[in-house]
Design a protein around this nucleic acid. Sequence first.
DNA 1: CGAGCGCTATGACGAGCGTCATATTCACTC
DNA 2: GAGTGAATATGACGCTCGTCATAGCGCTCG
Lengths: 191, 191
Amino acid sequence: MTTRDSRERTVRSAALLFRERGVDATGMRQIVEHAQAPRGSLQHHFPGGKEQLVVEAVEWIAGKAAEPLEASLEADPAPPPRQVVAELFDRFRKLLRMTDYRAGCSIAAAVVDAGSASDAVALATANAFRRWTGPLERALARGGMEQARASRVALLVISAVEGALIMSRARHDMEPLDAVATEIDLLLSAS
Amino acid sequence: MTTRDSRERTVRSAALLFRERGVDATGMRQIVEHAQAPRGSLQHHFPGGKEQLVVEAVEWIAGKAAEPLEASLEADPAPPPRQVVAELFDRFRKLLRMTDYRAGCSIAAAVVDAGSASDAVALATANAFRRWTGPLERALARGGMEQARASRVALLVISAVEGALIMSRARHDMEPLDAVATEIDLLLSAS
DNA sequence: CGAGCGCTATGACGAGCGTCATATTCACTC
DNA sequence: GAGTGAATATGACGCTCGTCATAGCGCTCG
């Protein structure tokens, strides 16, 4: 019932707050408050403490973001890679616009703030990125791209998105993300 | 004498610590300790508090990283853009290797941790990125690339570097950075 | 010599942090 | 309806944080 809801809401709120303020600057009290969840359940649901919450938040947001990618992999008339990538950029464009350039990527935040300090977090972030590059790589290969190149291009696309997200946040404008989207599309067209 | 040294060492240490642990997780006491600088001078040298220190650290590291780019712009036999970019990747490869994948980019750390909270930091990070894209863009344009495209490609290169840095840190291996370097070089070859 | 100033030393302040110990309430089964 | 374990409430713990107030150096210049 509301019980499992409250646990899930906590994980979700953690991910949302992390991507705006960073992991370290986000306190557990703020998380449960944002989630409208009881503070008393923190030690019950997350006995592993903040580290566990960070890991679960990373996994949650990774799944959330990987869904559309995996979905388009299984779609009947498989959409061309160009379209899959374009939609990926669109989602981040919308995120930046909706939060007035305040939000970034929760996973990047976890890497920057806690990646060097906790092996568990480092592992979670590495897996999270693979959930993005994996489907993308398969989509590219199925689109006719040589396997080794598909692997590299998938890494390039995700790297470019992550980096452009940071630059657009810093500049408070969409130019980096737009420019990167344009050039990546060009690259995919020339396949 | 040692006086100005100590101030500069503090800024330098701040930048170095930020890129490993993030801005928020790095305390002022740790910074002066790392810099072997007197704690008492903090309020004297940085009356603006931690925010000022973050801004100066961002400016310092941005200059440090922009130096080679600007230098190759003024070199007599101007090196081809491909080489300039390759050397850029090499420097970050070395950084990752030397710190066992613990270090990332101080500027990215500042954006993630404090970019949304402080206008001064946001401005400093935006300017820092421009100090990288600017010379790169001019190098590309001088290499024969159309101006609008040179601007986009410069943004792509820096974005890709920043993103690959994050992914390589998370995975503790060089594959993302290597893959991105390869693909970017391919893109520049096809110019 | 001594006044002034750049720099440093030191300790305290209030706030927030993550964590824990200890109840208390709730839901559900025998 | 008693009992049982999951879920929540509450407050305190020790620690670190950024900042500040206050004082003490060491140097130069009048």
